[in-house]
Design a protein around this nucleic acid. Structure first.
Length: 299
DNA sequence: TACCAGGATGTTG
DNA sequence: CAACATCATGGT
């Protein structure tokens, strides 16, 4: 059983504690859990489900398989790939930090959160669904809705009397009705958007691999064709799932508030003002907004 | 109590 | 084409 524990070598400027802080931002998170600075989450690889624990030792992120079939070398590689993507471990932040240092607004954030990675959502359907769920409601309520969806329609893994959930499959969400989701307090429009997107994925009309071959602008156009996906949601998915470094949901109210606080102003900035201040951020706009979001986390 | 939430869509003027 | 209503409900 020596095959159930392996590790990823971490770059110097990786801050496990800042990443953990982001992962801990809601007590209602249901797709992973953080305890004693360890991250627990289930992952489906090659049709079998593994329960994984991550923990940190200097310059190493250890991966331990707590539950699941025997791991092949292929499966092991898949799990590593997933984690590298999720925590954006391979990203070289040298240029980002260099740019941030010269930027009045960013400098304190980049210093305070040095080594923070843009925590992603590798699962395409989950990323889109989370964008839809988060539209126009406060984050606490959004987490509550996601939890209800996941706990009712996602696969569950039980380990030491604790339940761990996977995000529901597109095939399952595509079949849901108002009778299923209205009692969980999803709005009629969110239900339509969620099932519609899931159906589009089932039908092969859109996929992560297809989008990944397109330039940012084209991928954004494709996403916006989906009912319920506007500019904000498209950019959200492009930054959290497709890893486009210049995806920038500029209309985001969280961003507006974060900039307001950072500038110590009474009013939120206008879109035009943000566009102007974002000029030097080119190449790293998704990282910039992520750092601003991070600054909103209440201790 | 009113107003704001990590928006998007359909309608109206 | 810009302004407005609507969605649904929790948080403050």
């Amino acid at each position: 059983m020596s095959n159930n524990k392996f590790y990823i070598q971490l770059p110097m400027d990786f801050s496990y504690s800042e990443c953990l802080k982001f992962l801990c931002r809601s007590d209602l998170e249901c797709l992973f859990s953080v305890e004693n600075e360890q991250i627990y989450f289930p992952l489906e690889v090659e049709k079998s489900i593994f329960l994984i624990r991550l923990f940190y030792r200097p310059q190493r992120l250890w991966i331990e398989i707590l539950k699941g079939d025997d791991l092949t070398d292929f499966g092991k590689r898949e799990i590593k790939t997933y984690i590298l993507d999720w925590l954006d471990i391979k990203r070289d932040l040298t240029d980002f930090n260099k740019m941030a240092k010269k930027d009045k607004l960013l400098k304190p954030l980049a210093k305070r959160y040095n080594g923070l990675r843009l925590i992603g959502i590798p699962n395409f359907l989950e990323a889109i669904s989370w964008a839809i769920i988060g539209q126009q409601i406060n984050l606490t309520f959004a987490y509550t809705l996601k939890k209800r969806l996941v706990e009712n329609y996602g696969k569950v893994v039980v380990h030491e009397e604790r339940k761990f959930y996977l995000f529901p499959k597109a095939k399952v969400i595509a079949q849901l009705t108002e009778a299923d989701l209205r009692p969980m307090q999803f709005s009629r429009s969110k239900i339509k958007y969620l099932t519609g997107v899931a159906q589009a994925i089932v039908d092969g009309k859109i996929s992560k691999s297809q989008l990944s071959k397109m330039p940012y602008e084209d991928a954004k156009v494709e996403l916006i064709k989906l009912k319920g996906i506007g500019g904000w949601s498209a950019d959200y998915v492009l930054m959290k799932c497709m890893r486009c470094l210049d995806a920038f949901p500029i209309s985001d109210v969280g961003l507006h508030n974060a900039i307001k606080f950072q500038l110590g102003q009474k009013d939120k900035p206008t879109i035009e003002e943000i566009e102007k201040m974002a000029l030097p951020w080119k190449g790293w706009k998704s990282y910039v907004i992520f750092y601003f979001w991070h600054s909103l986390i209440k201790k």
